[in-house]
């Protein structure tokens, strides 16, 4: 481990100032679960760790007119167990509960996880399906970005130098929507997914509406399967329509070969799990 300074600024402005001052030598530090692991394996080095642990106001969940606001330092476990999240975005509470183990969820933060941009992480699937946004601050500006636009490549985000994720904004999950997260785990329950799919849809007069499909572990970034959504939007709900829409997911995914499966296998499994997730979300098979 190479870190030489562990800074604990008392304000966000001070933290952002340290990022500006030290540039590439500094890393923002939150729960540490990903960063300490990477540093121990010499995959990441930073002379200056800028911890947000003393910065107030970055933790917790509150409900506003545009949805849930979840502070970037909120722990995964606190999202999973939040009454507000369970009521207004139950899919999100469930997906955070599927990350690794309680021990990890007690430390890992929502902002840290998103900035880490591991394409096999669970939360982006639900966040993309729910049209969530991230709020991003630097000393020069504050901006918002849809979560699906945050990820630009393998472990790479749209964050510019000096920027920090400060908050997640998650619109309320439609109360009448079917919402499903299916995680394909051929090895162990606490593993990263081989592929996983979040699906959300409402049924209006026998037709599918507000269809949202997002996958993780199916390419270099989490991905929204717009092709599948379009194929099903407004369509009468039949097993055949769902099967055809799910097959279109091959055009949205770009899996990588690894020890959890070949790219071809993961592509096939993306189709299977997209179909199953949609069947459940649309009431064609038991949830």
């Amino acid at each position: 481990m190479t870190a030489t300074r562990f800074h604990t600024p008392a304000t966000l402005d001070e933290a952002l100032g340290l990022l500006d001052e030290h540039g590439d030598d500094a890393r923002l530090f939150a729960g540490g679960t990903a960063m300490v692991t990477l540093m121990k394996q010499s995959l990441l080095a930073a002379d200056h760790l800028v911890s947000l642990q003393r910065v107030p106001g970055l933790e917790g969940v509150r409900l506003e007119a545009d949805g849930l606001h979840i502070g970037a330092l909120t722990r995964h476990r606190d999202v999973e167990t939040s009454d507000l999240v369970r009521v207004y975005a139950p899919l999100l509470a469930h997906v955070y509960s599927r990350v690794a183990t309680v021990r990890i969820r007690n430390a890992a933060t929502v902002g840290g996880g998103l900035a880490h941009a591991d394409p096999a992480q669970d939360p982006p699937a639900a966040l993309i399906a729910l049209d969530a946004r991230v709020r991003i601050a630097s000393r020069r500006s504050v901006r918002e970005l849809p979560v699906e636009e945050l990820f630009v490549d393998y472990y790479e985000t749209a964050l510019a130098p000096g920027e920090a994720i400060t908050e997640l904004i998650v619109p309320r999950q439609p109360a009448d929507a079917g919402a499903v997260y299916l995680k394909f785990l051929p090895r162990t329950e606490d593993d990263y997914a081989t592929v996983a799919v979040a699906a959300l849809a409402r049924i209006v007069d026998g037709r599918a509406h507000g269809v949202r499909v997002a996958l993780i572990a199916a390419g270099p970034t989490p991905v929204r399967a717009t092709v599948v959504e379009r194929a099903l939007e407004g369509a009468p709900i039949t097993a055949e329509a769902v099967r055809r829409a799910a097959e279109a997911v091959v055009d949205a995914v770009d899996p990588l070969d690894d020890f959890r499966g070949s790219a071809g296998y993961k592509r096939d499994m993306a189709v299977v799990f997209t179909r199953r997730a949609l069947e459940r979300a649309l009431g064609l098979s038991p949830a």
Binding site: G32, V36, K40, S51, N106, A107
Partner: peptide, 12 residues
């Protein structure tokens, strides 16, 4: 709260 002390820094 239980945590994994191998991937948490003392400074935290």
């Amino acid at each position: 709260r239980m945590v994994a002390s191998c991937i948490m820094l003392a400074a935290q």
